[in-house]
């Protein structure tokens, strides 16, 4: 009846968060959505492109990536907000009153689960380019050139999206505002910015205008732009007027998008009451 043995150690809290994550249906729905969207969009895109004269089957691998990330994003947001959108946080923080291990454990559990989802989604994308490739009798070799890096980059991109979602969810604590934030930053803002520049009627000017340069820079530094650098082979032509970060730089920018809100959420947990 007295305190015996060590209590809430970090590995134990990770085990608890893994149980919590995998015991919600929403987690599995988001995972399934990621795999299905990845396979379906890549298949459709490969099928449409296979008629082109210079068709390269491997060029379609990342065709569905931008929308595939919605699954991991939602998975992360629901994991980050789940404690607060329900009363679950009371149980959680009474068991782990130091609080920060919960956040760290959630990041580990979500990253681990999202990694599996990401691998499954990338496998789905690979399988989806095979029918179009075989219809043109083109070989698909995944081990040549930059393809292994592209595949690894896709996995990191999708895993990073889930951790980014978790971080924003844990900071914002409410499902809808968190979803609006992550989807706005990853999908809506880049499109809006690009359209804004195009509509300003500078398309026919030679070279890159300052506005385009600014917009391209911002777009590259947004989560999906930075993540996109992970899957862009270094020999591919870069978007004009953007900082040349490379895959590692892109990965670091994506990591910052996850880390900054995560740290902010930790500070909020430490300084404020939870109720």
């Amino acid at each position: 009846m007295s305190a015996r043995g060590p209590g809430a150690t970090l590995p134990r809290v990770v085990a608890a968060e893994w149980t919590k994550l995998t015991s919600l249906r929403s987690t599995w729905w988001a995972a399934l959505a990621s795999v299905v969207v990845s396979g379906a969009l890549t298949y459709l895109s490969a099928d449409a492109a296979s008629g082109d004269p210079g068709y390269d089957p491997l060029g379609e691998l990342t065709a569905g990536l931008l929308l595939t990330q919605l699954g991991p994003l939602v998975l992360g947001v629901l994991a980050g907000t789940g404690e607060y959108s329900t009363g679950g946080f009371r149980t959680t923080f009474v068991a782990v009153p130091r609080r920060w291990p919960v956040l760290a454990a959630q990041a580990v559990a979500v990253a681990g689960f999202a990694l599996l989802v990401a691998v499954a989604s990338v496998v789905a994308a690979v399988l989806a380019i095979l029918p179009a490739a075989s219809s043109r009798d083109l070989p698909v070799n995944l081990t040549e050139g930059s393809t292994p890096w592209t595949l690894a980059g896709m996995v990191v991109f999708l895993t990073g999206a889930a951790v980014f979602g978790l971080a924003v969810g844990a900071l914002v604590r409410r499902v809808v505002p968190a979803l609006v934030t992550v989807i706005g930053l990853t999908l809506v803002l880049p499109v809006v910015l690009t359209l804004a520049v195009e509509s300003s009627g500078t398309t026919f000017v030679e070279g890159v205008t300052p506005q385009e340069r600014a917009v391209n820079t911002i777009t590259t530094l947004l989560p999906s732009g930075a993540g996109g650098l992970l899957v862009t082979s270094s020999d591919a032509s870069t978007v004009p007027g953007t900082p040349d970060l490379g895959a590692v730089g892109g990965g670091l920018v994506l990591a910052a998008w996850a880390l900054v809100p995560l740290v902010a959420a930790g500070v909020r947990l430490r300084l404020k009451d939870v109720k």
């Binding site: 007295s2 209590g7 968060e17 149980t19 919590k20 929403s26 009363g87």
Partner: peptide, 28 residues
Amino acid sequence: SAPLRSVGTMLDARSVHPGRTAFRHLMA
């Protein structure tokens, strides 16, 4: 050092994620 082994707390019946089974809630 081990809060759950020293103190058992029931604050509010709505301290559970509604999407999780009772058993998984307790397991976590």
